[in-house]
Design a protein around this nucleic acid. Structure first.
Lengths: 247, 247
DNA sequence: GGCCCTACCGTACGCTGTACGTTAGAGACG
DNA sequence: CGTCTCTAACGTACAGCGTACGGTAGGGCC
């Protein structure tokens, strides 16, 4: 037969069937379906029906591809519609929107985690698409009469907390309930003498591992703190929230 | 000496020179010195002057070794001495201690990141050594009159924020100032029409990337929120911090 | 002395990312 | 139509990874 069926010599893809967008969409789909561990340039190429090295025509490396994938998702992010209402409520909505962007698709979470693991952050910009949300948050904070530096720090803290919570949420994907049961069991197996509270509160602690409610809880704590701080200039109580002068 | 220099055939290590502790200490040193990317079972074995597979006598896999390394560090963690004072100040000290544990050694941060990246968290327990700090935190919260569920959630939020901040801090290691300068430059290169506040606050936002001060700022926000929430039972204002009843 | 147990080790397999050089097909031009 | 060029797509190769498997030698025991 004319078919040289020797070990998968492929029939050479036509000429312009590939594109950066097609590659990125397929990569994101692969990440969603099979997870980061199952992802590889070879697997991606096979999914596209293409030789592995064809990918390197469009991206110089796997890391560059990941950055582009992340920017693609973030770039398409549409923040939730402005609801009006007090500034802290709007801030809450904005943060929840970000959180859901991060946790909505497994692939996004995995790209985030990978980015955090990277030794050298390279040139990867700051999540270009979500910048509008950053701007919105800063506007709300400044509008509430919060000073320049404090607004910047508060915005950073909110993003930091959101990313951290999203990463943590990613660890307990799939088998939510099962995972939490085992967590509880492990807490309860601790010495009740040395750690009476942990053992006693094990059910509550396990329940707090659930993601969205717990995220909202911490978020509301931060927002309440922001409201309390009130007059930022006149800060300096002996036991309140001093201007953070540790080393 | 009698070196058979033919391509590294080694002279067989005596019999009981290896031990789990020695392996873990060497692994942590390697991680501190050369980073996660340069770490491999082969490199670790070579550092020990030992065949690669000797490591598998003590650990079933690389992941198990990492978990043991993490537990070793956490297990040796001594929380800062109890200072007395109001509960929220003590809570602050406890969290700062945890944060410094996480950020103090590069290796710890890298193990944390790796753990967060893992697809299947396997059997890795909850950072066994730092459990005493968890207990301490819960005691402070409960002592402040905070309810069971809220205490558990607050404790989880504090740990979550701390880990998230530590991970973020890890990204800007080594070249701190340089990294922040580039971050600021990238912010300033955005369209001043679309993102006036970001461009305006670029210096402050870049400064907020610095780790410890920024961590303390967010921590104080959370603690202030905890103090404000006050009587937890009587919560239910229209715009305050409702008991987080999303999804 | 002889034996066993096991800590240590060498080899090998399948996987990874990607450097490098090759090839074929589309478009431009005579 | 023939030919030339440019480059998207490709195959091969390499160094390195984690680790399954089986071998080997040396310390402890009878």
């Amino acid at each position: 037969m004319s078919e040289q069926s020797d070990t998968g010599r492929r029939p050479r893809t036509p000429r312009n069937t590939l594109s950066a967008d097609l590659i990125l969409d397929t990569a994101l789909r692969l990440l969603d379906e099979r997870g980061l561990d199952a992802f590889s340039m070879r697997a991606l190429a096979e999914e596209l029906g293409v030789g592995t090295m064809a990918l390197y025509t469009y991206f110089r490396s796997k890391e560059e591809l990941f950055c582009a994938a992340r920017d693609r998702v973030f770039g398409r992010y549409a923040p939730p519609p402005r609801t009006g209402g007090p500034w802290h409520r709007q801030l809450r909505e904005a943060c929840l929107g970000l959180y859901q962007l991060f946790t909505g698709r497994p692939s996004v979470l995995q790209l985030l985690a990978e980015q955090h693991r990277a030794e050298r952050p390279a040139e990867q910009g700051p999540a270009v698409g979500a910048v509008a949300t950053m701007e919105h948050m800063l506007g709300l904070l400044r509008g509430a009469g919060i000073g320049r530096e404090e607004a910047a720090r508060a915005q950073t803290a909110l993003v930091q907390y959101t990313v951290g919570a999203a990463l943590r949420a990613g660890r307990t994907r799939c088998t939510d309930a099962e995972q939490r049961r085992r967590f509880q069991a492990r807490l309860e197996s601790l010495s009740a003498e040395d750690f009476p509270l942990i053992v006693d509160l094990a059910p509550e602690l396990a329940a707090a591992q659930e993601s969205t409610t717990q995220y909202a809880f911490g978020l509301d704590l931060i927002l309440a703190g922001l409201r309390t701080a009130g007059s930022w200039e006149a800060a300096g109580r002996d036991d309140g929230a001093p201007p953070a002068q540790s080393d």
